[in-house]
Design a protein around this nucleic acid. Structure first.
Length: 430
RNA sequence: GCGGGCGUAGCCAAGUGGUUAAGGCAGUGGAUUGUGGUUCCACCAUUCGUGGGUUCGAGUCCCAUCGUCCGCCCCA
């Protein structure tokens, strides 16, 4: 009789890994706060037509990857496959545009796509995203890109590349699309089957194909940058200039195409080394038409989303080690000492320390062994001396130094202890 | 949705049709050790992802199914 397991493409995040998630979340929160972005929380499911209209009915995400179902009231509901549509819906519904100026929003949470799972690709996955709504200024593009770059840096990601492209306006893109299809039709039979299929449906994606022959053909295809209108070109030039001023390295990639229909003008991707085919950890761009298309006022916008699973995989692989901080591990020898331990631990916690008490009741040597492995900064040893009086041994696991303290000292010298704890911890981290 | 690899305890694994499923790490209990992780002993898979089938006999062969990993597709 088999036991029940998590469903395909979902997984549990166990305590050792949760530390990484918390680290990423805390870092992002701090950074986004500094950049004056405010958190927005939208529902995990929405009406299906929000995504159909927002993302585009022809996209693969909408066409074959959504978790769509009827609820008991016969409404068509979809588990959100991405965050932008919901954010924009909320922006319109609550008339955030009425506040004037630019709305800088960010979100974090689970997204759902019915895909074949792989490392770094789950059916329930998590994204952090930002949306800057209300400005056509190229500085808005640069700002969001800079934030993504800063976040990767703050997290200690060792190496990444930023690819940049411009898709221009819808009109620019249509012109380019015609030219591209025209060009590709000459080589139609040489294209791989997937790409032949995409010729009608989504020709721009052919540029991104992995088939060698198709790649070769794509090499000499028309370049989208040559099809940008004057305004589009100016905008894109300005974005590049600003990134250079910010000392953010990027490479132009005219083959970079976003998979969601709402993108216009600037499109970008951050790729991490060492994640195989799931290298794209952050993707985004400008979407000047989406707010209007979802029934709001004409509102330019730009944003991105980061895939948390991929990011965290990399942090773990890069051996950026994190531990849940623990100040004291308390062991006791003998019944009298054990009885005191609980109270001592409680008092230390009142003073703001984190304290773990050994509950095993096993041999003293084993308790000490556990203390060493606990990750605590110091070990508190009770009842080690014959006269199990009011003294405890305090052993600093970071240095091996040991001292004798009275239980009273633990209470009265809390401040001093706190200072030493901080010092020991900082020595540990360097 | 398509193609391929893999699935033996918490982890790493031996095992390739024949009696009771090696070993290591971790874990648990005990002995020993008096200022600290030593040493020793015991315990730790009626069962090999799950379900069928072939066979006198299957972890080992076959089928299905589930999961996972790699590639495609797609995307963050």
């Amino acid at each position: 009789m088999g036991s029940i397991q998590v469903s395909r493409g979902t997984r549990d995040i166990l305590p050792e890994e949760v530390i990484y998630w918390q680290h990423v979340e805390a870092t992002a929160r701090e950074l986004l706060h500094q950049a004056a972005y405010r958190e927005l929380r939208t529902p995990i499911f929405e009406q299906t037509n929000l995504f159909e209209r927002g993302i585009g009915e022809a996209t693969d995400v909408v066409g074959k990857e959504m978790y769509t179902f009827k609820d008991r009231g016969d409404r068509s509901i979809t588990l959100r496959p991405e965050g932008t549509a919901g954010a924009v819906r909320a922006y319109i519904e609550h008339k955030l545009y009425a506040q004037g100026g630019v709305q800088r929003l960010w979100y974090i949470g689970p997204m759902f796509r019915y895909e074949r799972p792989q490392a770094g690709r789950q059916r329930q996955f998590h994204q952090i995203g930002v949306e800057s709504l209300g400005s056509t200024d190229p500085r808005a593009d640069a700002e969001v890109i800079a934030i993504a770059s800063q976040l990767l840096q703050a997290l200690g990601v060792p190496q990444w590349t930023l690819s940049l492209n411009s898709l221009g306006t819808a009109a620019d893109r249509q012109q380019y699309r015609d030219a591209l299809v025209n060009y590709l039709n000459q080589y139609k039979t040489d294209l791989d089957p997937d790409s032949q299929d995409r010729l009608q449906r989504n020709p721009l994606r052919i540029l991104d194909s992995k088939d060698p022959k198709t790649k070769e053909i794509a090499q000499t295809a028309p370049n989208i940058l040559d099809y940008l209108g004057e305004d589009s070109k100016q905008h894109f030039d300005r974005v590049q200039q600003l990134l250079t001023d910010l000392d953010i390295a990027y490479q132009l990639n005219p083959c970079l195409v976003r998979g969601l229909d709402y993108y216009t003008h600037t499109a970008f991707e951050f790729e991490l080394d060492g994640l195989g085919n799931q290298a794209t950890v952050c993707g985004g761009g400008r979407y000047d038409r989406l707010v209007a298309e979802l029934g709001g006022p004409e509102t330019p916008a730009v944003g991105w989303a980061i895939g948390m699973e991929r990011l965290i995989l990399l942090l773990q692989d890069a051996q950026i080690t994190l531990n849940q901080s623990l100040d004291f591990y308390c062991v006791a020898r003998g019944a009298a000492a054990e009885a005191q331990a609980l109270l001592i631990c409680q008092n230390l916690r009142k003073q703001g320390f984190s304290v773990e008490m050994d509950l095993s009741g096993s041999a003293f040597g084993k308790q000490l062994k556990r203390a060493d492995r606990s990750g605590a900064v110091a070990c508190l040893i009770l009842g080690e001396t014959e006269a199990c009086d009011r003294t405890v041994q305090l052993k600093w696991l970071t240095s091996g130094e040991q001292e004798s303290l009275s239980q009273n000292d633990l209470n009265t010298q809390a401040d001093q202890l706190q200072t030493r704890m901080v010092a020991a911890r900082s020595k540990l981290s360097t």
